[in-house]
Design a protein around this nucleic acid. Structure first.
Lengths: 358, 358
DNA sequence: TGCTTCCATGCACACGTTTACAACGCGCCG
DNA sequence: CGGCGCGTTGTAAACGTGTGCATGGAAGCA
């Protein structure tokens, strides 16, 4: 049986109240008694019961983190950023992975984090209005990544600027026929990132005097395989693009794979630019828009810290910049782009793929 | 203010004891009253206070997961596996990321999980004897991945078999001069995986009648960059290997990068095999030893469930099999392997790299 | 009918802290 | 010399739930 505060009090010959104050470093306890208490606690190898403490004080010392997919690179990076800051302030991290649709639903009906956390961090989750409201009703500070909830703290990248930079990069290289592999189309819930990026894509094209062609926008659902299919679809057009902007590196990887399997090469045949600067983007020599991933996690955690300590300041919004990283998969447009009317080689076995330097 | 059990009791016109029993589905409560209680709770949108519940019952409904690096692919996958099982049983997941050495140390001096979790899952952590003992002293069931602690549950892959398979694959292709890029050498703590794999490598070579050459074993510290350096070192040997076994895919990626930068190709110049079947292994067409990653997480979580429910069975050990995945980076040995005495091209800018199909 | 058995329910305490409030001693100042 | 303020400590009441035990009543049985 672990020692309780009463045992410590007896051994130090003080009341439990004094023990509590001494251990938490409250000012109103004399140096001598504090010393005695600390020694007694040490000798009994005592540690406070977090549950009793929470119950009495109302504070839990815990922050809930809700993430759509822990096992994806992006979220695991953000999570690491969050963790590093929380840990430094002795806050615990209660993880909620909502990958499954059933789990997502269950989360919002049962609200298992209610009364369990001092604050909430929500990563990039498509939320319905009712769901946002349910979160707010927990009456704890909330920091949101990606989307936004009224009255909550907020961190995001400048998607408008990032996507514009990507498309401008391609235009500057001389490309006029530019495709986009987009994320999920028209999600009814409040997840605006794909919309903003798509808007930027269209706007920049328009500014460059390039006519809008809906055939050049193909959804890729953020996965490698879907990105590969999307690229195949683009290449099958009567007039295929000479450059493609994939709004995630994963989809860009898929696009590169399709190129390789068709015997094509980036950037010689098609230029490809991604978004994220995933760790393997460098390996594949992919030009991309980099965003500070772990850093965003740290910012979210810091906002929570502010909210928990300061208290009454109103929630702030932080926008972090993106950065163009030019690597080997984008290059100058050819004078006469070749026509590719071949179809991807089918077959279960892995095929070749390759990328070459600019 | 959130409703408490007393409010529910009043509204349902029963005692709090009955409310408690009804809500937890205990058998000894009549259907009629249970119905009344559930409705009252629903109307007040009541949810139990986890802290009060923990304090009273001694159970926390929480499992601590200690992981060295959340942001690495492997651990995030395992974490997802753990989460899926725990979630299905309404257990919360308290995450501890120990990446930093300071954090690691602090964790073991302060034991912040003590009295806070019902069980512990420890991922692949190099632990000193004192640290293992500290964990055991928490007196909760512990499931360990990779390493092993006496008296604890245990999941791991068959490293002996996996590594042997990798080396045999290379030998079967006709290779006689086979290098190995190893993980950290001689960690004084109880982390045996690299040792087992190295032993398998040496044993299989010996069984094939191939003389042991210490120059062919180079440490790569599990990172892409170090893996790249290791490959460079292997290629600079007077008699370089014709095939290389990297004991992690990350290091294999680095190895491929080095080959690419030197204008060499796998498997035409050097065959490369990795370990893990990382998600980008397929992209790079890397032959590798696959291990079921998320599945191991699920197994760990299930062990914990057994320990928490069953109770008195003694901890079991599960060994999951690995699987050879042949892709494009391994191929038959050449009759007369070329000599490469060039050094890697230096330079800050990214360089080409490529892989081709078998 | 009277006794036992069993189920449903209530009573009251325990769980281990935090914290408002009171009490106490001491020095200071009027 | 008395009162006042301040710093230190103790007292006791929450905090919200789980659970052993007692109670009451209905059903079963002789």
């Amino acid at each position: 049986m672990a020692a309780s505060i009463i045992d410590v009090a007896k051994r130090a010959e003080v009341s439990t109240a004094t023990v509590s104050r001494a251990l938490r470093g409250l000012p109103n306890v004399s140096a001598a008694t504090r010393e005695r208490v600390l020694r007694a606690a040490e000798e009994l190898s005592y540690s406070v019961s977090p549950h009793a403490s929470s119950l009495a004080s109302g504070r839990t010392g815990t922050v809930g983190v809700v993430v759509p997919f822990v096992n994806r690179w992006f979220y695991s990076q953000v999570l690491a950023g969050i963790d590093s800051v929380l840990r430094a302030h002795d806050l615990d991290l209660l993880l909620y992975n909502l990958g499954d649709e059933r789990v997502h639903e269950r989360f919002f009906t049962r609200m298992p984090l209610r009364r369990r956390v001092d604050a909430l961090i929500v990563l990039n989750l498509p939320l319905s209005a009712a769901e946002s409201e349910a979160l707010v009703s927990m009456e704890v500070p909330i920091a949101v990544l990606g989307s936004s909830i009224p009255g909550c703290w907020h961190v995001s990248i400048d998607n408008q600027e990032g996507a514009s930079t990507a498309v401008r990069h391609l235009i500057n290289l001389g490309h006029r026929r530019i495709g986009m592999i987009t994320a999920a189309p028209g999600d009814p819930r409040g997840f605006t990132t794909p919309i903003v990026r798509q808007h930027a894509y269209r706007t920049v094209l328009a500014q460059a005097g390039i006519a809008y062609d809906p055939d050049l926008e193909v959804p890729g659902h953020l996965s490698i395989d879907e990105g590969a299919s999307a690229m195949a679809q683009l290449l099958s057009l009567a007039e295929p693009p000479t450059a493609v902007f994939a709004e995630s590196d994963h989809m860009a990887f898929g696009a590169l794979r399709t190129l390789g399997r068709m015997g094509l090469t980036a950037p010689d045949d098609v230029s490809v630019i991604g978004f994220d600067d995933h760790e393997t983007a460098e390996l594949l020599d992919l030009t991309t828009i980099a965003q500070p991933v772990a850093h965003q996690g740290e910012l979210l955690a810091r906002q929570i810290l502010d909210a928990l300590s300061g208290g009454d300041e109103e929630p702030a919004q932080v926008v972090v910049p993106t950065r163009l990283v030019v690597r080997g998969t984008t290059g100058a447009a050819r004078e006469h782009p070749p026509r590719y009317h071949s179809t991807p080689r089918p077959g279960p076995e892995p095929d070749q793929h390759s990328t070459t330097a600019r």
